[in-house]
Design a binder for these strands. Sequence first.
DNA 1: ATTTATTTTTAGACAAGTCTAAAAATAATA
DNA 2: TATTATTTTTAGACTTGTCTAAAAATAAAT
Lengths: 218, 218
Amino acid sequence: MNSQSEEDYLKAIYHLEMDYDSISTNSVADYLNMKPSSVTDMLKKLADKKYINYQKYKGSSLTKKGKLIALSIIRKHRLWETFLVDKLGFGWDQVHLIAEQLEHIKSEELIENLDDFLGNPKYDPHGDPIPNKEGKIEKMNQKLLVELKIQQEGIITGVKKGTASLLSYLDKEKIKLGDSIKVIEVLEFDGTFIVEINNRKLTFSEKICQNLLLETYD
Amino acid sequence: MNSQSEEDYLKAIYHLEMDYDSISTNSVADYLNMKPSSVTDMLKKLADKKYINYQKYKGSSLTKKGKLIALSIIRKHRLWETFLVDKLGFGWDQVHLIAEQLEHIKSEELIENLDDFLGNPKYDPHGDPIPNKEGKIEKMNQKLLVELKIQQEGIITGVKKGTASLLSYLDKEKIKLGDSIKVIEVLEFDGTFIVEINNRKLTFSEKICQNLLLETYD
DNA sequence: ATTTATTTTTAGACAAGTCTAAAAATAATA
DNA sequence: TATTATTTTTAGACTTGTCTAAAAATAAAT
Ligand SMILES: [Mn+2]
Ligand SMILES: [Mn+2]
Ligand SMILES: [Mn+2]
Ligand SMILES: [Mn+2]
Protein backbone atom coordinates (compact mmCIF):
# COMPACT_ATOMS: atom_id res chain seq x y z
CA MET A 1 0.00 0.00 0.00
CA ASN A 2 1.39 3.35 -0.99
CA SER A 3 1.12 6.45 1.15
CA GLN A 4 -0.61 9.63 0.11
CA SER A 5 2.80 11.28 -0.16
CA GLU A 6 4.23 8.58 -2.38
CA GLU A 7 1.22 8.86 -4.65
CA ASP A 8 1.54 12.63 -4.91
CA TYR A 9 5.22 12.34 -5.79
CA LEU A 10 4.57 9.77 -8.51
CA LYS A 11 1.82 11.94 -9.95
CA ALA A 12 4.11 14.96 -9.91
CA ILE A 13 6.84 13.09 -11.77
CA TYR A 14 4.31 11.86 -14.29
CA HIS A 15 3.10 15.39 -15.01
CA LEU A 16 6.65 16.71 -15.25
CA GLU A 17 7.55 13.96 -17.71
CA MET A 18 4.84 15.30 -20.02
CA ASP A 19 6.80 18.53 -20.40
CA TYR A 20 10.45 17.64 -19.81
CA ASP A 21 12.72 14.75 -20.69
CA SER A 22 14.78 14.45 -17.55
CA ILE A 23 13.17 15.18 -14.21
CA SER A 24 15.41 17.03 -11.78
CA THR A 25 15.10 16.89 -8.03
CA ASN A 26 14.51 20.63 -7.87
CA SER A 27 11.71 20.54 -10.41
CA VAL A 28 9.85 18.03 -8.28
CA ALA A 29 10.46 20.19 -5.23
CA ASP A 30 9.07 23.25 -7.02
CA TYR A 31 6.07 21.33 -8.29
CA LEU A 32 5.16 20.06 -4.84
CA ASN A 33 6.28 23.11 -2.83
CA MET A 34 8.77 21.02 -0.99
CA LYS A 35 12.45 21.39 -0.15
CA PRO A 36 14.90 19.54 -2.42
CA SER A 37 16.30 17.58 0.52
CA SER A 38 12.86 16.16 1.26
CA VAL A 39 12.50 15.21 -2.37
CA THR A 40 15.84 13.39 -2.39
CA ASP A 41 14.67 11.28 0.55
CA MET A 42 11.44 10.35 -1.20
CA LEU A 43 13.15 9.65 -4.52
CA LYS A 44 15.34 7.11 -2.75
CA LYS A 45 12.30 5.43 -1.28
CA LEU A 46 10.47 5.35 -4.60
CA ALA A 47 13.57 3.91 -6.25
CA ASP A 48 13.73 1.19 -3.55
CA LYS A 49 10.15 0.31 -4.42
CA LYS A 50 11.10 0.20 -8.11
CA TYR A 51 8.65 2.95 -8.97
CA ILE A 52 11.32 5.22 -10.44
CA ASN A 53 14.77 5.05 -11.98
CA TYR A 54 16.85 7.33 -9.84
CA GLN A 55 20.51 8.08 -10.25
CA LYS A 56 22.21 10.41 -7.83
CA TYR A 57 22.71 13.86 -9.37
CA LYS A 58 21.37 12.61 -12.71
CA GLY A 59 17.61 12.81 -12.37
CA SER A 60 14.65 10.45 -12.27
CA SER A 61 12.11 8.78 -14.50
CA LEU A 62 9.10 6.57 -13.81
CA THR A 63 9.38 2.84 -14.27
CA LYS A 64 6.48 1.00 -15.90
CA LYS A 65 5.28 0.09 -12.42
CA GLY A 66 5.48 3.69 -11.21
CA LYS A 67 3.75 5.03 -14.28
CA LEU A 68 0.83 2.68 -13.76
CA ILE A 69 0.39 3.87 -10.20
CA ALA A 70 0.56 7.51 -11.29
CA LEU A 71 -2.06 6.87 -13.95
CA SER A 72 -4.36 5.15 -11.49
CA ILE A 73 -4.19 8.19 -9.20
CA ILE A 74 -4.83 10.50 -12.15
CA ARG A 75 -7.77 8.33 -13.14
CA LYS A 76 -9.23 8.69 -9.68
CA HIS A 77 -8.52 12.43 -9.58
CA ARG A 78 -10.29 13.06 -12.86
CA LEU A 79 -13.25 10.82 -12.14
CA TRP A 80 -13.82 12.56 -8.81
CA GLU A 81 -13.55 15.95 -10.50
CA THR A 82 -16.17 14.82 -12.98
CA PHE A 83 -18.41 13.70 -10.13
CA LEU A 84 -18.03 17.01 -8.32
CA VAL A 85 -18.93 19.05 -11.40
CA ASP A 86 -21.54 16.82 -13.06
CA LYS A 87 -23.34 15.58 -9.96
CA LEU A 88 -22.67 18.00 -7.13
CA GLY A 89 -22.84 21.24 -9.09
CA PHE A 90 -19.33 22.52 -8.43
CA GLY A 91 -17.62 24.80 -10.95
CA TRP A 92 -14.58 23.47 -12.79
CA ASP A 93 -12.42 25.98 -10.94
CA GLN A 94 -13.46 24.67 -7.51
CA VAL A 95 -12.81 20.97 -7.70
CA HIS A 96 -9.07 20.52 -7.84
CA LEU A 97 -8.24 20.72 -4.13
CA ILE A 98 -11.05 18.39 -3.18
CA ALA A 99 -10.04 15.85 -5.83
CA GLU A 100 -6.49 16.13 -4.54
CA GLN A 101 -7.80 14.49 -1.37
CA LEU A 102 -10.34 12.10 -2.88
CA GLU A 103 -7.80 10.61 -5.29
CA HIS A 104 -6.15 8.82 -2.35
CA ILE A 105 -9.21 6.87 -1.16
CA LYS A 106 -8.36 3.18 -1.34
CA SER A 107 -10.96 1.00 -3.04
CA GLU A 108 -10.83 -0.54 -6.49
CA GLU A 109 -14.53 -1.21 -6.43
CA LEU A 110 -15.36 2.36 -5.46
CA ILE A 111 -13.68 3.85 -8.46
CA GLU A 112 -15.13 1.36 -10.92
CA ASN A 113 -18.64 1.92 -9.57
CA LEU A 114 -18.08 5.67 -9.71
CA ASP A 115 -16.92 5.37 -13.31
CA ASP A 116 -20.11 3.53 -14.25
CA PHE A 117 -22.28 5.95 -12.29
CA LEU A 118 -20.78 8.84 -14.24
CA GLY A 119 -21.42 7.04 -17.54
CA ASN A 120 -17.76 6.16 -18.17
CA PRO A 121 -16.69 9.68 -19.10
CA LYS A 122 -13.69 10.13 -21.39
CA TYR A 123 -12.70 13.62 -20.26
CA ASP A 124 -12.70 15.44 -16.95
CA PRO A 125 -14.22 18.92 -16.47
CA HIS A 126 -10.96 20.55 -17.55
CA GLY A 127 -10.94 18.58 -20.79
CA ASP A 128 -8.18 16.23 -19.68
CA PRO A 129 -8.53 12.59 -20.76
CA ILE A 130 -9.36 10.03 -18.08
CA PRO A 131 -7.08 6.96 -18.11
CA ASN A 132 -8.90 3.64 -18.20
CA LYS A 133 -8.63 0.90 -15.60
CA GLU A 134 -5.58 -0.57 -17.34
CA GLY A 135 -3.77 2.76 -17.37
CA LYS A 136 -4.35 3.55 -21.03
CA ILE A 137 -4.70 7.26 -21.63
CA GLU A 138 -5.54 9.08 -24.83
CA LYS A 139 -2.66 11.16 -26.04
CA MET A 140 -4.09 14.53 -26.85
CA ASN A 141 -2.94 16.45 -29.86
CA GLN A 142 -3.04 19.54 -27.77
CA LYS A 143 -1.89 22.97 -28.87
CA LEU A 144 -2.08 26.47 -27.51
CA LEU A 145 -4.39 28.77 -29.42
CA VAL A 146 -1.41 31.00 -30.10
CA GLU A 147 0.18 28.21 -32.16
CA LEU A 148 -2.70 27.98 -34.64
CA LYS A 149 -2.57 29.47 -38.13
CA ILE A 150 -5.34 31.48 -39.73
CA GLN A 151 -8.39 29.39 -40.67
CA GLN A 152 -7.19 26.51 -38.45
CA GLU A 153 -9.75 25.03 -36.07
CA GLY A 154 -9.66 23.26 -32.72
CA ILE A 155 -11.79 22.18 -29.80
CA ILE A 156 -11.30 23.86 -26.46
CA THR A 157 -9.93 21.31 -24.03
CA GLY A 158 -8.63 23.41 -21.15
CA VAL A 159 -6.29 26.08 -19.96
CA LYS A 160 -2.65 26.03 -18.93
CA LYS A 161 -1.74 25.60 -15.30
CA GLY A 162 -1.97 28.55 -12.96
CA THR A 163 -4.52 30.39 -15.03
CA ALA A 164 -7.67 29.57 -13.14
CA SER A 165 -8.99 33.10 -13.63
CA LEU A 166 -9.14 32.46 -17.36
CA LEU A 167 -11.78 29.84 -16.64
CA SER A 168 -14.05 32.41 -15.02
CA TYR A 169 -13.62 34.72 -17.99
CA LEU A 170 -14.60 31.94 -20.39
CA ASP A 171 -17.57 31.10 -18.24
CA LYS A 172 -18.71 34.70 -18.35
CA GLU A 173 -18.43 34.68 -22.14
CA LYS A 174 -20.50 31.48 -22.23
CA ILE A 175 -17.65 29.52 -23.66
CA LYS A 176 -17.48 25.88 -22.64
CA LEU A 177 -15.07 23.02 -22.99
CA GLY A 178 -15.78 21.20 -26.22
CA ASP A 179 -16.70 24.36 -28.05
CA SER A 180 -15.12 24.67 -31.47
CA ILE A 181 -12.91 27.65 -32.19
CA LYS A 182 -11.53 28.94 -35.53
CA VAL A 183 -8.84 31.54 -36.11
CA ILE A 184 -10.09 34.28 -38.42
CA GLU A 185 -7.34 36.84 -38.22
CA VAL A 186 -4.20 37.67 -36.26
CA LEU A 187 -3.22 41.32 -35.78
CA GLU A 188 0.47 41.63 -36.38
CA PHE A 189 0.77 44.74 -34.23
CA ASP A 190 -0.02 43.21 -30.81
CA GLY A 191 -0.72 39.56 -31.51
CA THR A 192 -4.44 39.86 -30.89
CA PHE A 193 -6.49 36.99 -32.30
CA ILE A 194 -9.89 37.35 -33.91
CA VAL A 195 -11.67 34.03 -33.57
CA GLU A 196 -15.04 32.52 -34.21
CA ILE A 197 -16.83 30.54 -31.51
CA ASN A 198 -20.47 29.48 -31.68
CA ASN A 199 -20.98 31.73 -34.70
CA ARG A 200 -19.73 34.75 -32.74
CA LYS A 201 -16.62 36.74 -33.59
CA LEU A 202 -14.50 37.42 -30.52
CA THR A 203 -11.20 39.19 -29.86
CA PHE A 204 -8.64 37.42 -27.68
CA SER A 205 -5.50 39.07 -26.35
CA GLU A 206 -2.17 37.36 -26.99
CA LYS A 207 -2.02 36.40 -23.33
CA ILE A 208 -5.31 34.54 -23.55
CA CYS A 209 -4.07 32.74 -26.64
CA GLN A 210 -0.94 31.64 -24.82
CA ASN A 211 -2.99 29.92 -22.16
CA LEU A 212 -5.93 28.38 -23.99
CA LEU A 213 -5.49 24.72 -24.92
CA LEU A 214 -7.11 23.21 -27.99
CA GLU A 215 -7.31 19.79 -29.53
CA THR A 216 -6.64 20.13 -33.22
CA TYR A 217 -7.58 17.96 -36.18
CA ASP A 218 -4.22 17.18 -37.66
CA MET B 1 -7.32 21.48 11.30
CA ASN B 2 -7.68 18.11 12.98
CA SER B 3 -5.83 15.02 11.85
CA GLN B 4 -7.48 11.84 10.70
CA SER B 5 -6.34 10.19 13.93
CA GLU B 6 -7.80 12.89 16.13
CA GLU B 7 -11.10 12.61 14.30
CA ASP B 8 -11.21 8.85 14.70
CA TYR B 9 -10.52 9.12 18.43
CA LEU B 10 -13.26 11.70 18.93
CA LYS B 11 -15.70 9.55 17.01
CA ALA B 12 -14.75 6.52 19.09
CA ILE B 13 -15.34 8.39 22.33
CA TYR B 14 -18.68 9.63 21.04
CA HIS B 15 -19.82 6.11 20.23
CA LEU B 16 -18.59 4.78 23.57
CA GLU B 17 -20.48 7.54 25.39
CA MET B 18 -23.70 6.21 23.85
CA ASP B 19 -23.25 2.99 25.80
CA TYR B 20 -21.23 3.88 28.88
CA ASP B 21 -21.09 6.76 31.31
CA SER B 22 -17.39 7.03 31.94
CA ILE B 23 -14.97 6.32 29.11
CA SER B 24 -11.85 4.46 30.17
CA THR B 25 -8.55 4.59 28.36
CA ASN B 26 -8.65 0.85 27.77
CA SER B 27 -12.12 0.93 26.23
CA VAL B 28 -10.92 3.45 23.66
CA ALA B 29 -7.88 1.28 22.98
CA ASP B 30 -10.09 -1.77 22.44
CA TYR B 31 -12.48 0.14 20.22
CA LEU B 32 -9.69 1.40 17.97
CA ASN B 33 -7.41 -1.64 18.19
CA MET B 34 -4.68 0.44 19.70
CA LYS B 35 -2.44 0.06 22.74
CA PRO B 36 -3.51 1.91 25.90
CA SER B 37 -0.25 3.86 25.98
CA SER B 38 -0.97 5.28 22.55
CA VAL B 39 -4.43 6.25 23.69
CA THR B 40 -3.10 8.08 26.73
CA ASP B 41 -0.89 10.19 24.48
CA MET B 42 -3.78 11.11 22.24
CA LEU B 43 -6.13 11.82 25.14
CA LYS B 44 -3.63 14.37 26.43
CA LYS B 45 -3.54 16.04 23.05
CA LEU B 46 -7.31 16.12 22.73
CA ALA B 47 -7.55 17.57 26.23
CA ASP B 48 -5.03 20.28 25.29
CA LYS B 49 -7.27 21.17 22.37
CA LYS B 50 -10.27 21.27 24.73
CA TYR B 51 -12.03 18.53 22.85
CA ILE B 52 -12.30 16.25 25.88
CA ASN B 53 -12.30 16.43 29.65
CA TYR B 54 -9.51 14.15 30.68
CA GLN B 55 -8.37 13.42 34.19
CA LYS B 56 -5.49 11.10 34.76
CA TYR B 57 -6.69 7.67 35.83
CA LYS B 58 -10.28 8.90 36.02
CA GLY B 59 -11.51 8.69 32.43
CA SER B 60 -12.61 11.03 29.67
CA SER B 61 -15.70 12.71 28.24
CA LEU B 62 -16.29 14.91 25.21
CA THR B 63 -16.60 18.65 25.65
CA LYS B 64 -19.26 20.49 23.68
CA LYS B 65 -16.56 21.38 21.16
CA GLY B 66 -15.37 17.80 20.85
CA LYS B 67 -18.88 16.45 20.53
CA LEU B 68 -19.59 18.81 17.63
CA ILE B 69 -16.51 17.60 15.79
CA ALA B 70 -17.44 13.97 16.41
CA LEU B 71 -20.93 14.63 15.08
CA SER B 72 -19.61 16.35 11.98
CA ILE B 73 -17.47 13.31 11.21
CA ILE B 74 -20.40 10.99 11.82
CA ARG B 75 -22.52 13.16 9.54
CA LYS B 76 -19.94 12.79 6.79
CA HIS B 77 -19.56 9.07 7.40
CA ARG B 78 -23.28 8.42 7.12
CA LEU B 79 -23.82 10.67 4.11
CA TRP B 80 -21.01 8.93 2.26
CA GLU B 81 -22.46 5.53 3.19
CA THR B 82 -25.79 6.67 1.80
CA PHE B 83 -24.08 7.79 -1.40
CA LEU B 84 -22.29 4.49 -1.79
CA VAL B 85 -25.46 2.44 -1.37
CA ASP B 86 -28.04 4.67 -3.08
CA LYS B 87 -25.94 5.91 -5.98
CA LEU B 88 -23.08 3.49 -6.51
CA GLY B 89 -24.94 0.26 -5.88
CA PHE B 90 -22.90 -1.04 -2.94
CA GLY B 91 -24.54 -3.30 -0.37
CA TRP B 92 -25.00 -1.98 3.16
CA ASP B 93 -22.45 -4.46 4.41
CA GLN B 94 -19.71 -3.19 2.05
CA VAL B 95 -19.61 0.51 2.73
CA HIS B 96 -18.22 0.97 6.20
CA LEU B 97 -14.50 0.76 5.45
CA ILE B 98 -14.76 3.09 2.49
CA ALA B 99 -16.77 5.64 4.49
CA GLU B 100 -14.15 5.36 7.22
CA GLN B 101 -11.77 6.98 4.73
CA LEU B 102 -14.19 9.38 3.01
CA GLU B 103 -15.35 10.87 6.31
CA HIS B 104 -11.99 12.64 6.63
CA ILE B 105 -12.14 14.61 3.37
CA LYS B 106 -11.96 18.31 4.22
CA SER B 107 -14.56 20.49 2.53
CA GLU B 108 -17.67 22.03 4.06
CA GLU B 109 -19.13 22.70 0.65
CA LEU B 110 -18.56 19.14 -0.50
CA ILE B 111 -20.63 17.63 2.24
CA GLU B 112 -23.48 20.13 1.92
CA ASN B 113 -23.65 19.57 -1.83
CA LEU B 114 -23.57 15.82 -1.28
CA ASP B 115 -26.38 16.12 1.26
CA ASP B 116 -28.54 17.97 -1.28
CA PHE B 117 -27.61 15.56 -4.06
CA LEU B 118 -28.81 12.65 -1.90
CA GLY B 119 -32.07 14.45 -1.14
CA ASN B 120 -31.17 15.34 2.46
CA PRO B 121 -31.57 11.82 3.81
CA LYS B 122 -32.45 11.38 7.49
CA TYR B 123 -31.03 7.88 7.92
CA ASP B 124 -28.01 6.06 6.59
CA PRO B 125 -28.19 2.60 5.00
CA HIS B 126 -27.87 0.96 8.41
CA GLY B 127 -30.82 2.92 9.75
CA ASP B 128 -28.69 5.28 11.83
CA PRO B 129 -29.80 8.92 11.93
CA ILE B 130 -27.68 11.49 10.10
CA PRO B 131 -26.77 14.55 12.18
CA ASN B 132 -27.59 17.88 10.56
CA LYS B 133 -25.10 20.61 9.76
CA GLU B 134 -25.44 22.08 13.24
CA GLY B 135 -24.72 18.74 14.90
CA LYS B 136 -28.31 17.98 15.87
CA ILE B 137 -29.01 14.26 15.78
CA GLU B 138 -32.30 12.49 16.28
CA LYS B 139 -32.24 10.44 19.43
CA MET B 140 -33.60 7.12 18.38
CA ASN B 141 -36.05 5.33 20.57
CA GLN B 142 -34.31 2.17 19.66
CA LYS B 143 -35.07 -1.20 21.14
CA LEU B 144 -34.09 -4.75 20.45
CA LEU B 145 -36.87 -6.91 19.06
CA VAL B 146 -36.49 -9.16 22.09
CA GLU B 147 -37.61 -6.29 24.33
CA LEU B 148 -40.98 -5.88 22.61
CA LYS B 149 -44.24 -7.19 24.09
CA ILE B 150 -46.90 -9.06 22.17
CA GLN B 151 -48.80 -6.85 19.70
CA GLN B 152 -46.15 -4.12 19.94
CA GLU B 153 -44.84 -2.72 16.65
CA GLY B 154 -41.61 -1.14 15.44
CA ILE B 155 -39.70 -0.18 12.35
CA ILE B 156 -36.52 -2.03 11.53
CA THR B 157 -33.60 0.37 11.84
CA GLY B 158 -30.59 -1.90 11.94
CA VAL B 159 -28.72 -4.68 13.67
CA LYS B 160 -26.37 -4.73 16.62
CA LYS B 161 -22.67 -4.45 16.04
CA GLY B 162 -20.76 -7.51 14.95
CA THR B 163 -23.75 -9.23 13.41
CA ALA B 164 -23.19 -8.46 9.76
CA SER B 165 -24.31 -11.94 8.78
CA LEU B 166 -27.78 -11.11 10.07
CA LEU B 167 -27.98 -8.50 7.34
CA SER B 168 -27.49 -11.11 4.64
CA TYR B 169 -30.19 -13.27 6.19
CA LEU B 170 -32.64 -10.37 6.19
CA ASP B 171 -31.75 -9.58 2.61
CA LYS B 172 -32.47 -13.16 1.63
CA GLU B 173 -35.86 -12.96 3.33
CA LYS B 174 -36.56 -9.72 1.43
CA ILE B 175 -36.69 -7.73 4.63
CA LYS B 176 -35.47 -4.14 4.36
CA LEU B 177 -34.72 -1.29 6.72
CA GLY B 178 -37.88 0.69 7.29
CA ASP B 179 -40.10 -2.37 7.15
CA SER B 180 -42.66 -2.51 9.93
CA ILE B 181 -42.63 -5.49 12.26
CA LYS B 182 -45.22 -6.62 14.80
CA VAL B 183 -44.89 -9.24 17.53
CA ILE B 184 -47.66 -11.82 17.29
CA GLU B 185 -46.54 -14.44 19.74
CA VAL B 186 -43.60 -15.42 21.92
CA LEU B 187 -42.98 -19.08 22.63
CA GLU B 188 -42.11 -19.44 26.27
CA PHE B 189 -40.18 -22.66 25.75
CA ASP B 190 -37.26 -21.30 23.69
CA GLY B 191 -37.98 -17.61 23.29
CA THR B 192 -38.86 -17.89 19.62
CA PHE B 193 -40.78 -14.89 18.25
CA ILE B 194 -43.59 -15.13 15.75
CA VAL B 195 -43.76 -11.79 13.96
CA GLU B 196 -45.58 -10.21 11.07
CA ILE B 197 -43.67 -8.35 8.37
CA ASN B 198 -45.16 -7.23 5.07
CA ASN B 199 -48.29 -9.32 5.76
CA ARG B 200 -46.14 -12.42 6.19
CA LYS B 201 -45.84 -14.41 9.40
CA LEU B 202 -42.24 -15.30 10.20
CA THR B 203 -40.47 -17.15 12.98
CA PHE B 204 -37.36 -15.55 14.52
CA SER B 205 -35.03 -17.32 16.91
CA GLU B 206 -34.24 -15.64 20.21
CA LYS B 207 -30.75 -14.88 18.93
CA ILE B 208 -32.13 -12.95 15.98
CA CYS B 209 -34.40 -11.01 18.32
CA GLN B 210 -31.45 -10.06 20.49
CA ASN B 211 -29.68 -8.46 17.55
CA LEU B 212 -32.42 -6.77 15.54
CA LEU B 213 -32.90 -3.08 16.29
CA LEU B 214 -36.28 -1.38 15.97
CA GLU B 215 -37.60 2.13 16.37
CA THR B 216 -40.77 1.96 18.42
CA TYR B 217 -43.71 4.27 18.68
CA ASP B 218 -43.75 5.10 22.38
C1' DA C 1 41.46 25.92 -16.53
C1' DT C 2 40.19 28.15 -12.47
C1' DT C 3 36.87 30.25 -10.08
C1' DT C 4 32.15 30.95 -9.04
C1' DA C 5 27.37 29.65 -8.95
C1' DT C 6 23.86 26.25 -8.86
C1' DT C 7 22.05 21.82 -7.91
C1' DT C 8 21.82 17.88 -5.21
C1' DT C 9 22.84 15.14 -1.40
C1' DT C 10 24.04 14.31 3.45
C1' DA C 11 23.70 15.06 8.37
C1' DG C 12 21.04 16.03 11.97
C1' DA C 13 16.69 17.73 13.93
C1' DC C 14 11.70 17.67 14.76
C1' DA C 15 6.53 16.52 14.99
C1' DA C 16 3.01 13.00 14.69
C1' DG C 17 1.54 8.70 15.82
C1' DT C 18 2.48 4.38 17.08
C1' DC C 19 4.78 0.53 19.95
C1' DT C 20 7.07 -2.24 24.18
C1' DA C 21 8.52 -2.50 28.77
C1' DA C 22 8.43 -0.78 33.24
C1' DA C 23 6.50 2.09 36.94
C1' DA C 24 2.66 4.02 39.35
C1' DA C 25 -2.08 4.31 40.60
C1' DT C 26 -6.33 2.18 41.42
C1' DA C 27 -9.38 -1.74 42.20
C1' DA C 28 -10.30 -6.38 43.79
C1' DT C 29 -9.49 -10.14 46.92
C1' DA C 30 -8.04 -12.57 50.74
C1' DT D 1 -6.05 -4.16 56.02
C1' DA D 2 -2.56 -6.23 53.40
C1' DT D 3 -1.77 -8.50 49.25
C1' DT D 4 -2.58 -9.27 44.56
C1' DA D 5 -4.44 -8.06 40.11
C1' DT D 6 -5.77 -4.73 36.79
C1' DT D 7 -5.64 -0.33 34.69
C1' DT D 8 -3.28 3.61 33.35
C1' DT D 9 0.63 6.33 32.72
C1' DT D 10 5.54 7.16 31.82
C1' DA D 11 9.92 6.40 29.54
C1' DG D 12 12.10 5.43 25.67
C1' DA D 13 12.22 3.75 20.94
C1' DC D 14 10.83 3.60 15.99
C1' DT D 15 8.77 5.14 11.36
C1' DT D 16 7.21 8.55 8.15
C1' DG D 17 7.65 12.79 6.21
C1' DT D 18 9.20 17.07 6.63
C1' DC D 19 12.80 20.89 7.58
C1' DT D 20 17.60 23.66 7.97
C1' DA D 21 22.39 23.95 7.43
C1' DA D 22 26.44 22.25 5.54
C1' DA D 23 29.06 19.43 2.29
C1' DA D 24 29.70 17.52 -2.21
C1' DA D 25 28.92 17.27 -7.08
C1' DT D 26 27.94 19.42 -11.29
C1' DA D 27 27.41 23.36 -14.37
C1' DA D 28 28.47 28.07 -15.83
C1' DA D 29 31.43 31.94 -16.31
C1' DT D 30 35.59 34.27 -16.39
MN1 LIG E 1 -3.22 14.31 -3.70
MN1 LIG F 1 -8.72 18.06 -13.97
MN1 LIG G 1 -12.04 7.16 9.87
MN1 LIG H 1 -23.67 3.43 9.03
